[in-house]
Design a protein around this nucleic acid. Structure first.
Ligand SMILES: [Mn+2]
Ligand SMILES: [Mn+2]
Ligand SMILES: [Mn+2]
Ligand SMILES: [Mn+2]
Lengths: 219, 219
DNA sequence: CGGAATAATAAGGGTAACCATAAGATTTTT
DNA sequence: AAAAATCTTATGGTTACCCTTATTATTCCG
């Protein structure tokens, strides 16, 4: 089966869907938020993706990837995360920037380059943000962890991944040392979805807003 | 001065112009051939480039890059050739394929990545196809050599660069060991722009068509 | 059950790059 | 100086993505 060259836009939609679908279908309006377009535009695109056999849209229910779509999406994820490893480990680029930079490269990367890069990097299993790198065949163990926003007060957890994508957000977290591998104790959770109070390894206390805490996966 | 994000198409046109302009202006129809569009389409694009201050078009004479255009074009060339070095030296990708693969990556490469890559590679001066890599400031010593097609019979020369871009053409030359560094003797030139007869280092004799010989720069 | 919220569609536009065909305008060649 | 070749411009299309502003359909919830 031929894998035609898909547009950057198409790849970004598919990546968004695979990242958002834990178990159930993805609402088109959520997808729209994620890829930063209006719901109407996302709806149009979902139709186009459907025509290409990449997604299945059930009106009023949501979108799901087809097998073909999942394959493509995982491959985009693979390219993205391999580049993140290269940019961070070899080019020594600032941790907060690697997602954004890799997100451009991922669409310009031929299969030959992807596989040669994987070999060059020693077939890494996770990217510097802690996310698993899908294998060449698309197989992929999803992240085993919970968002920090769902951890109860008093618990001590270890960060496994930081799933933010915006450089500003990543830089904010980096400055507070909320990074994969760090051990964090949840001291307090303010009411009404207010900020969490966290104790970091050095003993420093840090306040973290709930929407940011949703990006931080811990175990 | 801000360098807005230019489209892939724009970058390819600028790169084509800088590569084709030795001394005089570039005819729009030549440009059209190079970027594989119709002359009308190239004309439209030249207008757009003119409005953006990247080229100067003199009707019936040709196009020339402005200073701004030359800067952008050299930067594209820098990105392209740095990626070629990486793909060849580090990822061990087949020589004939690196141009095509680098030609995708070049448009997805932010300045931070370009410079970090240059440092990682040890600031190489030439790419595996023998072309000089422009410096970060755009400075750039043009290739010192002549096309093999202009060498007279009996002369022995050394290949400095192979300027073909199509993978098929590069593979054809690679198979005949017409590669940078090789020493070649022109044994015979058939009349009517017919093929050249060449003696290669091993003593093997190779026939090479004139249009292919135009890609091979020697000294 | 019925209204509110949410989702989908319809309709009308916009831009960037491409295409083709058909005139003009200019240069080159005879 | 014509004629031929080349270059430019004028028109009119196409596709992929995006937008806004209705309108309609469905689901959710009190
Ligand atoms: Mn639908
Ligand atoms: Mn991307
Ligand atoms: Mn013009
Ligand atoms: Mn290119």
């Amino acid at each position: 089966m031929f894998i035609e060259q898909l547009s950057e836009s198409t790849e970004m939609y598919l990546k968004a869907i695979v990242e958002m679908s834990d178990r159930d279908m993805v609402a088109v309006s959520r997808l729209a938020e994620r890829v930063n377009v209006t719901p109407v535009s996302a709806n149009e695109m979902v139709h186009r993706l459907g025509e290409q056999g990449l997604v299945e849209h059930t009106p009023y229910k949501g979108v799901a990837l087809t097998e073909k779509g999942r394959e493509v999406a995982c491959n985009v994820l693979r390219r993205q995360r391999l580049w993140e490893v290269f940019l961070y480990e070899h080019l020594k680029i600032e941790w907060a920037q690697i997602y954004e930079l890799a997100c451009s490269l991922e669409h310009a990367t031929a299969p030959e380059v992807t596989e040669a890069l994987a070999t060059f990097l020693g077939d890494p299993r996770t990217c510097p943000r802690g996310n698993p790198i899908p294998a060449a065949d698309g197989s992929f163990t999803p992240l085993d962890g919970l968002p920090l926003s769902e951890i109860s007060v008093g618990k001590t957890v270890r960060v496994v991944a930081v799933n933010a994508t915006e450089t500003d957000v990543l830089r904010y977290l980096q400055e507070r040392e909320i990074l994969p591998g760090q051990e964090i104790t949840v001291l307090e959770a303010a009411p009404l979805h207010g900020p969490l109070m966290l104790r970091m390894p050095g003993g420093k206390e840090v306040a973290l807003g709930m929407s940011l805490a949703e990006f931080v996966f811990v175990k």
